[in-house]
Nucleic acid binder design. Structure first.
Lengths: 206, 206
DNA sequence: ACCTGAACACCGTTCAAGT
DNA sequence: ACCTGAACACCGTTCAAGT
């Protein structure tokens, strides 16, 4: 069993993401990552101070691939939509890591770059610094919540099915709505909610 | 050390919430809850099958206090705003429990009642079943994400301060916006994002 | 000096021993 | 029959022993 000489925190993150993709977030442990790399558990601590730092590296790895250049030649609402959708696509590739992205996004370099771009689009659209900040926070809130909704209880998933089977006399609207909506694809649902927010931004004072 | 004879799952939830409020979510363990109740750890399993079920009981406890009657005598947008704000208020009283409400809200009876009310307001406003479902999901996404934003990195908190201290040449907008926005109270921020969503709903087809 | 096995202080939960 | 202590299989991390 040959042991690699020099690793980086990024190598650990890649191994951790492999574990998450295979065994889910519950399967992630320092021991599992070490086994994945073929080294002793304690050797991980040469590259990373603790588990939390490793988790942050995983989030950076997931989000580093997101293109943060504003989509050119489109109205600003479409530019924002494109930027949000890129994050959704990157995160959706690793559903097991969703809780980590939510917890650690604040320290992610990739998220900072992305936020800077979003603010640039909002500035070009004429929003004041204060309204830019509020708009960014609202977009981040929706993005965060939508990713979690999608991961924890997809609209077309079992949770909705369970809702559809509720007694209609107790929940006349919820039971009916759930069965009606169970066929909406996740990407369409994400876009529908995002469009509401962007429509609100279009009408808002700048 | 007298031990109580008959407890309920709700008693366990109350003790668990006490632990969370005092020591944070990290301090929550079966042993801590048992100690709080003055019983043996294993006795908990007479009232609850496992830790996850206990967590669900905590979420129900936090959300059971939310009034799910639609605020009367107001336009539907204000009714929705009121319903969202009630949840925010209830959850904000137990910030340590925020991650639990996000994870377990799908199985919460209180959330179902609340969702039924929201759908009723949307139906009265003329939205089709499909558009009601999409609107509810968008509102839940925003609510979920906003609560997490507020708990994990309040706009006026240290995360924003850290952003404000970023090198302005690398993040010209983010650094400036952060210091500008650091004074927005959480309640105002929540309302601002919600207003964007409600404005979008007002303009949306029904 | 570098790497790592054993150990420590936890955790949720099983199970058998106690009443 | 009810309750629960000891034990099991984990976990992140400390620390000293090994090279």
């Amino acid at each position: 069993m040959p042991r690699p000489r020099s690793l980086t925190a990024r190598h650990l993150a890649t191994a951790a993401l492999t574990v998450i993709d295979r065994d889910g977030l519950a399967g992630l442990s320092m021991r599992a990552v070490a086994t994945e790399l073929g080294i002793a558990t304690m050797s991980l601590y040469r590259y990373v101070p603790d588990r939390e730092a490793l988790e942050r590296q995983v989030v950076d790895l997931v989000l580093d691939g997101v293109d943060t250049a504003p989509p050119a030649g489109q109205p600003w609402q479409r530019q924002l939509a494109g930027l949000l959708e890129r994050v959704r696509t990157a995160v959706a590739a690793h559903p097991g890591a969703v809780p980590l992205t939510v917890t650690h996004r604040h320290t992610s370099e990739a998220v900072r770059q992305w936020s800077e771009t979003v603010l640039g689009v909002l500035a070009a659209a004429g929003f004041t610094p204060r309204r830019r900040a509020l708009a960014l926070r609202a977009l981040l809130a929706y993005l965060t919540g939508a990713l979690q909704n999608e991961h924890l209880a997809p609209l077309a998933g079992e949770a909705t099915t369970a809702l559809a089977e509720l007694p209609p006399d107790a929940y006349p609207l919820l039971s009916g709505t759930a069965s009606e909506a169970a066929r909406v694809p996740a990407a369409e649902e994400f876009r529908a909610g995002l469009d509401l927010l962007l429509s609100g931004l279009s009408a808002a004072p700048r």
